[in-house]
Amino acid sequence: MVTANRIEISWLDGLRGTAALVVVAFHAFLFTGRTGDAAAAMPVWGAIVGQGYLGVPVFIVLSGYVLMLPVVRGGAGTFRNGIADFLKRRARRILPPYFAALLFSLALIAAVPLLQSPSGTQWDSKIPIDLPSVLSHVFLLQDLSPQWIEKINGPMWSVAVEWQIYFLMPLVLLPLWRRMPHVVVVAAITAVLLVPAFVGYGAYLHPWLVGLFAMGMFAAELTLSERLPRWLPWGAGATGLAAVAVFVASALRGTDLLPFKEVVAGGLIALLLAWGGWREVNGRRVRPLRVFATRPMLYLGLISYSIYLFHSPLLGLANLVLLPLGLPTVVQYLVMTFVAAPLAVAVAWGMFHLVERHFLNRRQSRVEAAVHHEQTPSSAPAHVRSSRQAGPAA
């Protein structure tokens, strides 16, 4: 039974940082050469690295998980200091780095003519820049239209989704949570919001991500329960089989069953968090996950939001600079992955220090201090430390 006021599970940081790097690796492949060049030149490798977009459902499940932990600990099914305080803290953490990245992207496009004209590359989906696309990003509404969602800086659409879920959590999800069985809430929301994937209308909204957020909430409930339910191993096995079935069906059909991949991936991550979190909270270390709590992984998790926000336009520019060299596609991909991507991460590191580090929450400030002093964030047991993190923003 947990008796402390706050909770921290340190390997969540490294897990988040790893997800950010997976997304960067995916985009390095996606931006290589003209549109489709990398997939044609490296079909097998493309089938592997091309699943990198699954870093997004990892972020969403993590967000639901860590934001729900203090709610579960409070016992009332509500935020301790009210909805306004919750949204204020989320805004302070999420929005300043987001707007810095938006200004950075717009300034880069305005300053570099190479980024302003179509070139037959993946970058073409980011331009031209017009007033509606800019305003939709300013108000975090770009996910509401297929004409806006990929403009300027592609990864930003998921930040908009997460921002909107922050409002749904207290206004919709928690009220349902207090009135209905939690597994029913998760199943019903996920099933209903998968409908656009079946009817082929509105799927660009990724509405099922709300269900993944709810999966994270449920994982938090299980983490702080007295004991894990007996069905958890069976649920993990069934979800694993579902994941295999979805990936095989996707390969056989020749189409990417993205919504269903994201749902099963989210389910697996939620089950992992429930199992690993429960063991850690109860003093039972989870050795396979401890690698994510090492000093380098903690630091990677600390800057993961900046990595996520700033890398895309830099990779787009790097590809356009390389194109006139006429490199073979495989060589260009290697340069994108092992030169351009690390440079983009380095710029993100700089932007973290310039902007994001001034808006860290208290826990993250402690992590930063501990990392720089080559210590762990705290020597206290997992169940007496703090956990206020979310999504790529930690």
Rank of each mutant, 00 (worst) to 15 (best):
V112D: 08
V112E: 10
L114H: 12
L115N: 03
Q116H: 13
Q116P: 12
S117Q: 15
S117C: 06
P118S: 04
P118T: 03
S119F: 04
G120Q: 03
G120T: 04
T121H: 03
T121M: 00
T121R: 04
Q122K: 04
K126R: 10
K126S: 12
K126I: 01
K126W: 03
K126M: 08
K126P: 00
I127Y: 15
L131V: 15
P132D: 10
P132V: 14
P132G: 13
S133G: 01
V134D: 02
V134P: 06
L135Y: 08
S136C: 04
H137N: 15
H137S: 10
V138W: 03
V138G: 00
F139M: 05
L140A: 01
L141W: 07
L141R: 05
L141P: 03
Q142V: 00
Q142Y: 01
D143G: 12
L144H: 08
L144C: 07
L144V: 09
L144E: 13
S145T: 00
S145G: 05
S145N: 12
S145C: 00
P146S: 13
P146A: 12
Q147F: 09
W148S: 01
W148H: 11
I149H: 00
I149S: 09
I149G: 02
E150L: 03
E150I: 02
K151V: 00
K151T: 02
K151A: 05
N153Q: 08
G154L: 07
G154S: 15
P155L: 15
M156W: 09
M156E: 07
M156Y: 03
M156N: 10
W157E: 10
W157Y: 15
W157P: 10
W157T: 15
W157M: 11
S158L: 07
S158N: 09
S158E: 11
V159E: 06
A160G: 10
A160C: 14
A160I: 04
A160V: 06
V161K: 10
V161F: 08
E162G: 06
E162M: 04
